[in-house]
Structure formats: C-alpha cells, structure tokens
C-alpha cells in the first residue's frame, strides 16, 4: 500500500473546505428566494381570503355590530378556519386597539403571547363593519 504524500492531504483538505462552502451556499440561495416569495404569497392569500369573507358579508353576519364581545366566536372561527386548506396552520386573535382577545373571545394579557414556529407569519385584517373597528391577527404557517 502506498503512503499518501503531503500534497494529497492538502488537496483533501481543500476539497472538504470547498464542499462545505458549496453546501453552505447552495441551499441558502434557493431558500432565501423561495421563503421570501412564499411568505409574501401566503400573506396575500390570507388577506384576500379574509377580504372575500368580508365582501360577501360572512364576517359581518358572524360578528355583533354594536358589541364585539357578544360575537359568536365559535361560528366566526369556523367560517375563517373553513376557508383555509388543511395544509395551512392558523391561529386567530382579535385586537380592539388596546387589548387582544383569543380566538374564542377571552381577554388576553398580551397579544401574540403563544408559542409560534419560526416560519409563522402574521396577517392583519381590520374588520370595520361594526361600531368599533377590530383588527384580526391571523397567524399562518404552511405545513406539509
């Protein structure tokens, strides 16, 4: 068996470094582009879905015009969740200008205070068809 020379090991080290650099950069390049585009698309999808529900009167019918706390949150939640495919995980919160309510109407001590995956995005949709406007925080994430 031949003994390996110095140049051989120098070349091997170079090769290892080069492969590390390639693997560090190749996926990053693709991920950056796809992730940013995907987040934008997901956000646009969320907003346009909520706007469609608003335009056809679904949000309006499910909420209480004069007292948002009297809204049937279970019905509202089912309309919203039913509008998204099962491949998108969502969480819902309502912000009245000072405080947040949970998806089912209970008051929260702070907004967005729950465990979220790093790739979760937030879409804000203001429901203005009521005496006091309320903004919905829709947290969205793709799952496969």
């Amino acid at each position: 068996m031949n003994k390996k020379g110095l140049y051989f090991w120098v070349e091997m080290i170079f090769l290892v470094i080069v492969f590390i650099l390639i693997f560090a950069n190749l996926p990053r390049s693709a991920d950056n582009f796809i992730n940013v585009k995907d987040r934008n698309d997901l956000g646009n999808f969320g907003f346009s879905t909520l706007r469609s529900l608003d335009n056809i009167g679904t949000l309006d019918n499910a909420t209480n015009d004069t007292d948002f706390s009297a809204t049937n949150f279970t019905v509202l939640s089912s309309y919203i969740r039913g509008s998204f495919p099962s491949t998108i995980e969502i969480d819902i919160e309502y912000f009245n200008g000072t405080h947040c309510r949970s998806e089912f109407g209970s008051m929260l001590s702070s907004c967005g205070n729950f465990t979220k995956a790093a790739d979760t995005i937030r879409v804000d949709y203001t429901m203005a068809k009521m005496v006091n406007a309320t903004t919905m925080h829709l947290y969205m994430r793709r799952i496969f």
């Binding site: 706007r51 608003d54 804000d124 949709y125 203001t126 429901m127 203005a128 068809k129 406007a133």
Partner: peptide
Amino acid sequence: NLLNAAQQRNDW
C-alpha cells in the same frame, strides 16, 4: 389594510 377597512366601513 387601512384602505380596505375604510372602504368596508363605508359600505357598512
């Protein structure tokens, strides 16, 4: 969102 909210409110 602001633009849409203003339009929705006026419709309402």
